[in-house]
């Protein structure tokens, strides 16, 4: 996959008159090639096209973080990324966290610390946290708070989430040698 691919080639969609553009990307490790409407956001691509319903929309304007996914190693709010911008990208969503039927340490700690109540913001928090720990296995409280304050939660008061990320970082360092 390359960024150099000419994206200006469209096929006219006969019925709706909408233009389509082909994108090729990796979603949770799987190769995906799709023809999409260029107005589609990455969030809608993941949900409506890929049927990955774990990623949520709660504002649609990048303010709440519920739609956070990891794009090329960075946490982004997928509601304000065009799907076509993800051409050639590697995307990770909440569905990609658990491996071989086993929850990741981060997910386990979210459960153990009760870092969720209604659960709607949880995928976004998990992905922001995952991106943080991937870059910084030993973050300070301030670093965690800086990164996670782009995610809104109305249920928990955040303290359990902070605890979960700290204990997950500790366990990952110990158990995975990060």
């Amino acid at each position: 996959m390359s960024n150099e691919k000419d994206c200006s080639m469209y096929t006219e969609h006969v019925e709706s008159g909408k233009r389509k553009v082909t994108i090729q990307l990796k979603v949770n490790g799987h190769q995906v090639v799709r023809d999409i409407d260029p107005t589609m956001s990455l969030l809608h691509f993941l949900r409506d096209d890929q049927k990955l319903f774990g990623t949520k929309e709660a504002c649609g304007e990048g303010e709440c973080g519920a739609c956070t996914v990891i794009m090329n190693g960075k946490a982004v709010t997928s509601c304000i990324v065009l799907a076509v911008e993800a051409d050639g990208a590697e995307i990770k969503t909440v569905e990609g966290l658990a491996k071989n039927g086993k929850l990741s340490i981060l997910q386990e700690e979210f459960i153990a610390e009760d870092a969720l109540q209604c659960g709607f913001c949880t995928p976004g928090f998990l992905m922001s946290s995952r991106a943080l720990l991937d870059h910084n296995p030993n973050p300070s409280d301030e670093e965690i708070i800086e990164v996670l304050s782009g995610n809104l939660c109305r249920c928990t008061g955040y303290i359990p989430i902070l605890r979960a990320v700290k204990t997950a970082a500790e366990r990952e360092r110990k158990e995975l040698g990060r």
């Binding site: 990048g62 303010e63 973080g65 946490a75 709010t77 922001s128 304050s149 782009g150």
Partner: peptide
Amino acid sequence: LASFQLRNR
């Protein structure tokens, strides 16, 4: 400026 995720974009 803004939030961490937004600053990534």
